[in-house]
């Protein structure tokens, strides 16, 4: 870990007391079937957390819950009141319609939504910010290119530029490095570390455990139920990973209704 990252650790340690997200025995799912079952824990400001686990473990569902796109079946997620303004969310890349006639500049400029809203214009200073964000992801010269002509890596760089402009305190990334080459992953990880250094909170769904071990101080290992949550070193052990791998993926139609949680009923 470099000196820069060290100072980031110090910075995030200073604001450790500030709790930005709390999961209180939360269960998220679809049509009564839980995808994330009984998760409890808190996220402090400035934490850099990897969310790992097999496919179908509920990782994306958890991010949707944090974003408020999915209401919990039980329990609660405590997030900032003005969640939409303070949380930025990058869904899996497949959700963008790449055939739509829009260019890189315009899609990046959407990151200024908090300032422009539905109707506001883009000021001179905003234009400079947009250009800066595009340069920061290494896409200068691509401003007028339609997004349909970009490679997968270039598209992801453009979406990261938009995240840069969103200037959010909490950043949720759903498999941000999937299907990208090494150079692109390196550049985008550097951006994530920059956000961490700036004291922002980042939660990223990831499959590459080497990457997690190298860059993410904390990890939540999910297998529909939380397997373990804490320092990456102690979470990504072979015992835990084996437990996660044996997660049952099938829904049990005959399952009994889950007993009401003891602690959260009163809240």
């Amino acid at each position: 870990m470099g000196a820069e990252a060290k100072s980031a650790e110090v910075k995030s340690a200073e604001v450790k007391s500030a709790e930005v997200l709390a999961f209180r025995d939360v269960t998220l799912g679809y049509d009564r079937h839980p995808a994330v079952h009984h998760l409890t824990g808190t996220v402090n400001a400035g934490e850099l957390i990897a969310i790992c686990g097999p496919n179908g473990a509920g990782k994306s569902t958890l991010l949707k819950g944090v974003m408020g796109l999915l209401s919990p079946l039980a329990g609660s997620i405590v997030r900032p009141d003005d969640g939409r303004a303070r949380i930025a969310y990058l869904p899996q890349a497949a959700e963008v319609d790449r055939s739509f006639p829009i260019n890189v500049y315009d899609i990046v400029a959407l990151g200024l939504w908090r300032r422009t809203g539905l109707f506001g214009g883009v000021s001179h200073a905003d234009r400079a910010r947009i250009a800066e964000a595009i340069a920061a992801v290494g896409l200068d010269g691509f401003e007028r290119r339609p997004i349909g002509t970009l490679s997968g890596g270039q598209m992801q760089r453009a979406l990261f530029a938009r995240l840069l402009l969103q200037n959010a305190e909490i950043i949720l990334l759903d498999e941000p490095f999937t299907a990208l080459d090494a150079a692109t992953v390196r550049d985008l990880v550097a951006l994530v570390e920059r956000w961490h250094g700036e004291g922002r909170t980042v939660l990223a769904v990831l499959h590459d455990l080497e990457l997690v071990r190298a860059h993410f101080p904390r990890t939540l290992l999910l297998a529909r139920s939380p397997v373990e949550w804490g320092e990456t070193r102690t979470v990504l052990t072979s015992t835990n990973l084996t437990r996660a791998r044996h997660m049952c993926e099938a829904w049990d139609e005959g399952a009994h209704a889950c007993a009401p949680a003891r602690t959260e009923r009163a809240a």
Binding site: R84, V96, I107, L110, F119
Partner: peptide, 23 residues
Amino acid sequence: AVLWRPLVVECVDPGFLRSVSRA
């Protein structure tokens, strides 16, 4: 003219629009 931006964004990246606005 008034709704152009949300209409375009809802079409190109509905997930993003949901994440920033209820529009």
